[in-house]
Structures are given as C-alpha cells and as structure tokens.
Amino acid sequence: MSRLNERFTKLYKIGLVITFAYFLLVLFYDIHNLGTDRKRYLSEHYISQGVQETGATNLVASVLYDYRAFDTLGEATMILTAATVLAFLVPITKATMFGTPFKSIVNQTVKLIIPYIAVLGAYLILFGHISPGGGFVGGVVLSIIAILLTLTYSVEFSEYIFKPDQKKFIEDIGAIGFVLLGLLGIFTGSNFLSNGQANFGTGNAGEVFSAGLMPFINLMIGLKVSAGLAIIFNSLIKEK
C-alpha cells in the first residue's frame, strides 16, 4: 500500500511539473506570436548607439557597467552577502576535510598552471570592456587559484596562502571602490554612476584606457568576485 502511495506521489509530482512546463510553453508561444511590431527600441538603441555612447566595444559590458550599472551594484552586494553568511555560518574551529592525497604529478601540475590562470584572469578583467570577459568572469577565473589550492593541497594550505581576513578585506575594498567610483559622478556635478555624461572621456573605442570608468569598475568587480567566490568555496568545503 505504501509502495503504491509512494509511486502515486511521484507520478503526481511529475504530473505537476509537466503541467507547469506545458503551461509555460503555451504562454511563451502566445507571447511570441503576438505581433511583429513589438517595441524593441531599448535593445536596438543599445546595439546601434552603445559603442558611441559608452566607448566600450563589448556590448554586454556597456549594458552591465554603464547603462544598468546600478543593477550590477545590487548583484555584487548579493555575492558579498552570500559570502558573509557562509563565513558566519561555518565555525572558525577546524572541521574535518576530505584529505585525498594526490600524487606529486597533480601537485606539480597545479603549481605550473596557477601563473597562467592568474594571467588569464587579469586579462579578462582588464580587457573586459573591449573583448569578451569582464569583472564577473575574470573574478571567477581568479578564484579558481584558491579553489585549486584547496582541492589539491588542503584547506589549511589554501588559507595559509590567502588568509581569510585578507580575502574579506579585498572583497570589501572592491565593493567600496565600486561605490566610490559611482560617487565620482556626483562629485563632478553629474549623477550617480555616470560615465560619459560626467566627461570621464570615453576615449577611442577599442583601446585599453577607454570607456571612462569602465575598466576601473571592472577591476573592482573582479577583486570582489574573486575574493567572494574563494570565501564561499572554502566555507562550503569546510562544512562537516
């Protein structure tokens, strides 16, 4: 009886998911077929005018760090909150970790790879506004260094190289730097987070020092995301 009941619950759950999926499908289909003259002026404007207005050849970066930079501030705050929660939840006392001993091949390879990862991350951050990449992506790549150290050596070693306090400090510096860069706009007589409008010089699109404040905002986000993800990973793996 209980087996039948179990099977019925399972079927019921699957049925609910399928119904919901079908419902969404119908809805998307309906919206898609509504008409061809729907207003798309916003995305069209971003595509046609984005390079001239922001000076960044990477359109994603121009939306993320210029048109809608305020959203990015909120998202970055969310990562900081998550990292703080996890660091707060996991006690400072040592917990048991999985200490799989690797052969020296693995350890040596990781040692060899790390400089390349660092260069790649720095490149992605600094060239974020002219080529695919940006602060978030570059930050993730940089945080891989700490994650690799944790996985191959141990949490202790990883935290010996990058102290938790230092990571927290870098994360906060990144966040404060972002807000201060935004405030530059107010101090020059324009609005919060303004870039080209406050005459920060969008420069020639395609050069490293172009697009006004965007490279610096990218740098701040990169610092913050890399430190934040390293904290999150180490806290999660420390969990018993």
Binding site: K168, F169, D172, I173, A175, I176, V179, I186
Partner: peptide
C-alpha cells in the same frame, strides 16, 4: 532630489566599511 540616491548608498557604504572595520 539629489539626496534620494544617498538613501541607498549610505547603508551600502556603511555595511562595506563595517566589514573592514570588523577586521582591522
């Protein structure tokens, strides 16, 4: 009306500074 944005920035900035102040 310039002040409206400070209503959001001030607590954010305080929270980040508190993070540093807690450490050092």
């Amino acid at each position: 009306m310039e002040l409206a944005v400070w209503v959001i920035i001030l607590p954010l900035l305080t929270a980040f500074s508190l993070g540093i102040s807690k450490l050092y």
